[in-house]
Design a binder for these strands. Structure first.
Lengths: 207, 207
DNA sequence: GCGTTGCGAAACTCGGCCGTATCGAAATCA
DNA sequence: TGATTTCGATACGGCCGAGTTTCGCAACGC
C-alpha cells in the first residue's frame, strides 16, 4: 500500500480510490433491511451486498464484522428537527409527543427502535450509539422545555426532570406497544400531557 | 392411529403414550434459552433438543414449527402474584412499581420482555399471547388500585385511567432501558409515583 | 406374545451463509 | 505505459441448522 502525494500534500493511497457511492449504498441497504424487520442476527452480508448491488468483497474491505457496519449505519440516522418551540410548555410537549407518535407509526422507525431496545443486551455498542444519537438529543430538548416551564412558573419549581421525562416518553412508547389495536390514537399526546400536568391527586383550589 | 377405549370410555390412542416429562423439559429448555438472551430467530430446534435431553423427533412430533413451540412456552409463564394491596394508593403503586423494577433487574425476565417487545412485528401471535398473559393481568390490578383511589378521593374523580397506567408503566420501562448505567435506581418507584400524583403544575393551595 | 406408538440417538440431504480467493475490467497516479 | 488498487461477479470449502429417516428399545392395550 504505497501512498501518493496530492498537490495539497495530503497522503493518499495509490490505485483506484474507493467508491463513496458504493459505501453509501451499502449503508442504505443495511438500513433498508433493518427497517423491513430483519434483526441484526438474521442480517446477512450477502443480502446486504445483493440489495446494494455490490460485491461482498467491497463490504469486507471496509468493515471487518457485521456489528461495525450496523453501528456505522445507525450513525447516519439524523434525528429530524424535533421541536419548533415557542408556545406554552403544554403545547410544546404535545407537539413533541405528537412527533414521537408519528415516528412510531412508521414501520421502519419501529423496527429500528426495536433493534435498539432488544439487542442492547447482546450488542452494547449498538445500544450506546443509539442512545447517543437519538435518545439523548431528544431528552435534552424536552428537558429544556421543562426547565423553561419551571422558570416561568408554568411548572412546579421542584419538578424532578428525570422522572418527568421518563413519564412522558415512556407513556408514548408503552401505548404504541400495548394499546389495543382498534383504539383511536389521535388525542393521545394531549391526554398524556394533561394527565401529567394535572397529576393524579385532586387539586383542591382548582376544581 | 387406532384408538383404544379406557374404562371411563375416553378414547385414547393405541401404543405408548407421549411422555409429559419430555414435553415439560422441552418447554423449560426453550424458556431457559430465551432467558439466556437467545432470540427467537437464533433459537434452533437442535439446541432445544440437546438442552432438554430429547430427540429432535420428539419435538417435531408435537410442534410443527418454532413459533408454535415458543407460543406454548410463553403460555406457561405465570405472572407472580403482583400486589399485596391494602395501604394507601400511593403505597400500593410504589410497591407495584418496585415489583416491576425488581423483575426487570433479572436477566431472564429482561430477555423475555425483549422478545415480547421486539418480535411483535414479525410474530404477532407471540405479542398477543404475551399481552394476554402478562400485560393485561397487571394492567387490571393497577387499574383496580386507581379506581379505588378515585372512589376514596385520594385520586381525582375524573382521572384518565388508561393514561395514568401508561405514564406509570412506561416510566419504569423507560428508565430501565435508558437511564445511565452508574445511576442509582433504589428510589425510582417512589419518585415516579410522587411526580405522577403531584403532577407537573404548581399546586396553589398545597405549598 | 403381538401390534402399535413413543422414545433417544444417529445418519442423512438440503439449503443458506461465512469468509476467502480469483477473475477481468476500471480508475487513479507517476 | 505501467504499477497499484478497487470494482462486481463468481466460485469455493466449510459450518450449521432444518426436517426426515432409520434403528433398537420401551411402554402401552389386547
Amino acid at each position: 500500500m504505497k501512498t501518493q502525494q496530492t498537490a495539497e500534500g495530503v497522503a493518499r493511497p495509490a490505485g483506484r480510490p474507493r467508491s463513496e457511492k458504493a459505501e453509501r449504498s451499502i449503508i442504505e441497504a443495511t438500513l433498508e433491511l433493518l427497517g423491513e424487520g430483519i434483526g441484526v442476527s438474521e442480517l446477512s452480508i450477502e443480502s446486504i451486498a445483493s440489495r446494494a448491488g455490490v460485491g461482498k468483497t467491497t463490504i469486507y474491505r471496509r468493515w471487518s464484522n457485521k456489528e461495525d457496519l450496523v453501528v456505522d449505519a445507525l450513525a447516519t440516522l439524523k434525528p429530524p428537527i424535533p421541536l419548533p418551540q415557542g408556545g406554552t410548555v403544554r403545547d410544546d410537549l404535545v407537539t413533541y409527543l405528537r412527533v414521537i407518535q408519528e415516528e412510531a407509526s412508521h414501520h421502519r422507525t419501529r423496527c429500528i427502535m426495536n433493534i435498539a431496545m432488544s439487542d442492547s443486551e447482546r450488542h452494547p455498542r449498538l445500544a450506546e450509539r443509539f442512545r447517543e444519537l437519538t435518545v439523548e438529543p431528544r431528552r435534552a430538548v424536552v428537558a429544556a422545555v421543562l426547565r423553561r416551564g419551571m422558570e416561568t412558573g408554568e411548572l412546579r419549581a421542584d419538578l424532578d426532570i428525570d422522572m418527568a421525562l421518563a413519564l412522558l416518553s415512556g407513556a408514548v412508547i408503552w401505548l404504541t406497544k400495548w394499546s389495543h389495536p382498534g383504539e383511536s390514537h389521535a388525542d393521545i399526546p394531549e391526554r398524556i400531557v394533561d394527565e401529567a400536568l394535572k397529576g393524579f391527586r385532586p387539586r383542591p383550589s382548582e376544581p
